[in-house]
Design a protein around this nucleic acid. Structure first.
Lengths: 139, 139
DNA sequence: TGTACTTCCTCTAGTGACTGGAGGTTCAAG
DNA sequence: CTTGAACCTCCAGTCACTAGAGGAAGTACA
């Protein structure tokens, strides 16, 4: 079973151009070609591409995905590193969440400060955007 | 009172190179220069730069900041637009938060699936990263 | 087999919002 | 007047793609 780049794109949910980009970056290996120079992929490529896609969806940076791909190429190594990557990513997601929560509070305050029927000159929203002193904390 | 670019940088918490970039992009106006061609800024520039910085910290895209800066140049206009920008940003922050929450749950599941003392070959973390089917929902 | 139509190819450049470095000049303190 | 930090311009690089030009290959149907 072989796939054209378009098939692969549909199956994995990754754009055609992005697949070519991944190949160029060495994230997937250069596939076979037809006589007419078109790429033909196999199941393995699909799996690998899905792995990458899923990792990206989970917010992993490409560097982490590279590490994980490298790891999966060495099945006899201990898996501490894979574990670490997952935990690191979890921590950074939690960080981002709490940062965004602070932001949310800030923006709520700012958005609520506008009663609606006045002009820019005395708009509290603009003042609030301009002045960090009004904020409760850091963001 | 005038500031060198370094002074301004410290006062506003924006890097020197970034200030020059903002000038190039027209976000701040080209400042006066000394005889030796060095930039000299005033209080107005500092205010404007702080406005930009604060907006960025609040997660606004540059396009929104541009809009707000334009608005504040027309003090007699109604301020609906400033209000709208704040509300839009609030909605998008909330979106991002709930997206990250789903991610967090996913990563928790993945990170917990590794008991620690085995090899890559049977590592559930790697399997989990590779397989979206294991996930509870979208991310 | 012909023809249309879609998909594919490479190559280059652009995105956003900066960041970094090279190579040289100016400023301010002592 | 000297020293050393700060400044100047210009260019390239970052990340992870995305878009477009200009042309070739594959495929479905008559």
């Amino acid at each position: 079973m072989t796939f054209s780049i378009g098939d692969l794109s549909r199956q994995a949910g990754v754009k055609v151009t992005t697949i070519r980009y991944y190949e160029q970056e060495g994230l997937i290996s250069a596939p076979l070609r037809t006589d007419g120079n078109q790429r033909r992929f196999g199941e393995k490529d699909l799996k690998r591409l899905r792995f990458i896609k899923h990792g990206r969806d989970l917010g992993l940076p490409m560097s982490a995905i590279r590490e994980l791909l490298d790891l999966s190429g060495h099945p006899d190594q201990p898996c501490d590193q894979a574990d670490r990557i997952a935990r690191d990513q979890l921590l950074s997601v939690r960080d981002r969440i709490s940062q965004l929560r602070r932001l949310e509070a800030e923006l709520e305050r700012i958005a609520n400060s506008c009663s609606g029927d006045h002009t820019v000159a005395d708009c509290d929203v603009l003042k609030a955007f301009g002045d960090h002193g009004q904020c409760k904390g850091e963001h």
